[in-house]
Amino acid sequence: MSISRRSLLKGAVVAGAATALVGRAEAREEVEPRPDAVGMLYDSTRCIGCRACVTRCKEANSLPYDRTAEGIHDAPTDLNSNTKNIIKVWTAGEKSAFTKQQCMHCVDPSCVSVCMMGALHKEGEGKRDFAGEKKGTGVVLYDKGTCVGCRYCQIACAFNVPKFEWFEAFPLIVKCELCRHRGDPKKEGPLAIANPACCEACPREAVVYGKREALLAEAKRRLAEDPKRYNGLIYGEKEGGGTQVLYLAGAGVTFKQLGMPELPEESSASFSERVSHAPYLHGITPIALYGAMAFVIRRNKSKEEASEHHGEGK
């Protein structure tokens, strides 16, 4: 008995060490932005808070109104199951700045990492064959057919973007899908995938649609052209592994004040998968462990039965 125990412990130590070593070597690679990634650039300094984008988003996505208590205004206070896009204001004394919230279409999205059956997936990379979805644009789409409504995406998303229809017997997860249903085949290349209503509605090009690379270049150009206007940073270039919706904010305004979480450069998905996948070694560990345990248990049992002389195993 003591021998089996000791050998078992020894085995465990060896397995653990192997796991640690190989696990490091096998660590998940960082996801890089796809070359065809599309997204949006929101410039808080250009936004005048007209909310044409909020109204048009609701129209384009046929979303219900979010009426105030009196019922006379459509006034969501936050993203919710009726609202995929919202304009909020930050104020401090005399200073104020607008910000826009919608799905960030992360380069390495947490929601996609956690979604059990790929209901939330990057375009063309879901678990089912989606007609008409091309790979590479990196837009995060929702497939209600495989969603079980576990809401893990809501836990995982650092931006609190996915929303749930709490008051429906057959609810959906609701979030911006970059108006994929308004996709415009006349647009060139990957841009044909979508045509966000908010970008179309904006009277000041405070939010524009384009390829992520082009938007990033444009953001940098704006920063270089008028450095005094901006706080000098581009949110979403690196934050949380990068996002496909990029933000610019005015001088003296931090992104945190605009409600953006402070995220490390490593995406949450990468961290989580790195830590929890390492010990599995692509499934080798559980199988080996199972085999070893079955062997030990069977041996122990036959020994026990032999010592009892009459088979009374349970």
Binding site: S113, V114, C115, M116, M117, K127, C150, Y152, A269, S276
Partner: peptide
């Protein structure tokens, strides 16, 4: 099993 997203801890 073909539907499984193996990176999901919840799965």
């Amino acid at each position: 099993p073909t539907m499984w997203n193996l990176s999901s801890a919840l799965l």
